[in-house]
Simulated assay, not measured.
Amino acid sequence: MWNPDAYLAFADQRGRPFFDLMACVNADDPRRVVDLGCGPGNLTATLAQRWPRAVIEAWDSSPEMVAAARDRGLDARVGDVREWSPAPDTAVVVSNATLHWVPDHQALMVRWARELATGSWIAVQVPGNFDAPSHRAVRELARSDRWAEPLHDFPFREGQVEDAVGYAGLLVDAGCAVDAWETTYVHELSGENPVLEWITGTALRPLNSRLTDLEWEQFRAELIPLLAAAYPRRPDGRTLFPFRRIFVVAQVG
């Protein structure tokens, strides 16, 4: 289960990559814009503001996220992005911080490029921080004797996503004009355990269904000193949290 409130705890910082991504989509007056992995809809709503005449189509695999998006007035539906196919009038496909959850998403992106009409846009952003200290700490703790049994299938691994060159190559080969890049954002976080709270809303989510409530709290407690060592709090009380992200914007040829 996704928790929209936990995800939105850092809404401004999580939202910035979306706007950086969409700034490179030069669609003029699209008829249909699709957000695959719309989450709670706070960012999807900005697509309707940018293109008020477009039909906004929103998908997410989480019923909780879809309910939150519908509360914002969006026509959101529960669905697996692997099952989505573009309607003939689809002009822009956006997938922000979603495809890293999808096995073999590279083939999915190539399929979209082949199914979309010439001139359509594909805009994708994925985290590129699976080898960051935060994720290494989670993996190491999950593999420890205490947690190896309940968390033996913890999904995050190194190499879960391509780099910018990898994604660019896939879509160039599919006949697209491509703009791909990487950015490392350095977030200024505050609070007692801010990195833990950040990853609780995303990277730690798969653990929740694998652990009891008591185990969940114990696992999080054991993470605190590991994250504190990797991301020490500054004398001014802030914690600097670098976060690498990978972007690709493609126009179908």
Rank of each mutant, 00 (worst) to 15 (best):
P30V: 04
V81Y: 08
N42F: 05
G79T: 07
A97C: 11
A68C: 12
L36R: 12
A107W: 02
D80K: 07
W84N: 11
D71Y: 06
P88I: 11
Q106T: 15
D89E: 15
L47S: 03
H100V: 06
L74R: 09
A91H: 08
V81A: 15
L74S: 10
A87E: 15
V34Y: 03
E64K: 13
R72V: 09
A91M: 07
G41Q: 02
E64P: 01
T46W: 01
R70K: 14
N42M: 05
A67M: 06
D71P: 00
G73S: 11
V55F: 00
V66E: 04
L43R: 03
E83T: 09
Q106V: 10
T44F: 00
Q106M: 04
S62Y: 07
V110R: 12
A91S: 13
R72E: 08
A107E: 10
T90I: 08
R82N: 07
V102L: 10
P40W: 01
S85Q: 14
A69Q: 07
G73A: 14
Q49E: 10
R77F: 10
P88S: 14
R82S: 14
P103D: 15
H105S: 13
P52N: 03
S62Q: 03
R50W: 06
A48Y: 03
S95V: 04
V66P: 05
S85I: 14
